[in-house]
């Protein structure tokens, strides 16, 4: 009771990254609140995914498995979620800000009259006092940009439960536990929850492409250049990207040198990106490359050449060896992130 429930989305029989990221965050929140982390898994033939959910810290996996639930449809998924939340009374419920989560979560929040904050970029636990002097402990701070990204707002739901939030993929990091928790499955009897009217909308066709590398949609990009030196060294770029929940990019010189795939090339002959944060590693900063990234909101350049042109467009320049800087950044991030 009063635990944290993460709605876990699947895609082609696999758990979506965003759900694993939410479980990682949910685990940290549960630790602060001294409650349990639980997962809600809806689909067909998805029971085998429970083990992966345990390795992300879910103590209980609420499972609704039914052939009619193979693909997401609002009404049956909402009916199951609403019924579960009424029974379990979670204090916090998290959803991916995907086309599924952004369709489902508001429907659920309306039915339960609980507040919902969309596209949070940060979730924290803290206290709150309103202007009448009422005080609450341990509320979920739902932090999100608003007004076209010009302000950052912290939202709380003092009086209604669950406190609901959606988070986009790639915003939070995902990290499995070294030892999975000893979890168990709790089956939801769908025949008791679903009614014929829940299947009013039918899916006639679906054409969904396989997931590909999506540098354009990434909020954070870590890109490496020729200065990275070797394919082995390039693994460091992937390591940093992984802990930050970032996508990996590369300059043309790095792609030509065979350090990584062409799909990751940024610049005039590659893709153009405008992430919130661009970390440039071992890239000199030729105009052909910077044309594809200079609109990034924030740029950090890491290069041991103090005269590299990349430093001129950077907000932060680190003059140093990437083999030293990147591991330090990873260690520092792991230490300070909540």
């Amino acid at each position: 009771m009063n635990n944290i429930i993460v709605f876990c989305e699947t895609d082609n029989g696999k758990l979506c990254d965003v759900s694993l990221e939410l479980l990682t965050k949910g685990r940290a929140l549960a630790e602060t609140l001294k409650c349990d982390l639980e997962a809600l898994l809806i689909g067909h033939n998805v029971e085998n995914l429970a083990n992966e959910l345990y390795s992300y810290g879910a103590k209980t996996v609420h499972l609704a498995d039914d052939p009619q639930l193979e693909f997401f449809r609002t009404l049956p998924y909402a009916a199951i979620t609403i019924s579960l939340f009424k029974e379990e009374k979670p204090q916090i419920a998290l959803f991916g800000a995907t086309s599924v989560g952004r369709d489902l979560a508001p429907r659920v929040s309306s039915a339960l009259h609980s507040g919902l904050t969309a596209d949070c970029t940060s979730l924290e636990i803290g206290d709150h006092q309103d202007n009448k002097g009422n005080k609450w402990d341990n509320l979920l701070y739902q932090i999100r940009p608003a007004f076209g990204g010009n302000i950052i707002a912290t939202i709380v739901n003092p009086e209604h439960r669950p406190q609901m939030a959606t988070v986009r993929e790639g915003v939070m990091r995902k990290e499995a536990l070294a030892t999975p928790v000893d979890g168990s499955i709790k089956r939801i009897d769908t025949s008791k929850v679903l009614m014929d009217t829940d299947f009013a909308v039918s899916i006639i066709e679906r054409h969904i492409k396989e997931k590909k590398i999506d540098i354009k949609g990434a909020q954070i990009v870590v890109a490496g250049g020729y200065g990275v030196g070797s394919k082995e060294n390039f693994k460091l770029i992937f390591d940093l990207a992984k802990v930050l929940g970032a996508e990996v990019g590369a300059s043309r010189a790095a792609v030509d040198a065979g350090f990584t795939d062409h799909e990751r090339q940024i610049g005039q002959t590659g893709v153009t990106v405008r992430p919130k944060l661009f970390i440039s590693v071992g890239i000199s900063g030729q105009i052909q490359h910077t044309a594809g990234m200079d609109q990034s909101s924030m740029i950090i350049s890491i290069n041991n050449d103090p005269n590299a042109p990349i430093h001129q467009i950077a907000d932060y320049s680190i003059i140093g060896d990437l083999n030293e800087v990147l591991p330090k950044m990873i260690a520092s991030y792991k230490k300070h992130s909540k």
């Binding site: 507040g115 302000i151 939202i155 739901n157």
Partner: peptide, 12 residues
């Protein structure tokens, strides 16, 4: 009728 309350607003 609003369950959500704005606790704080920061400008970028």
């Amino acid at each position: 009728g609003s369950p959500t309350k704005v606790k704080k607003v920061e400008n970028i």
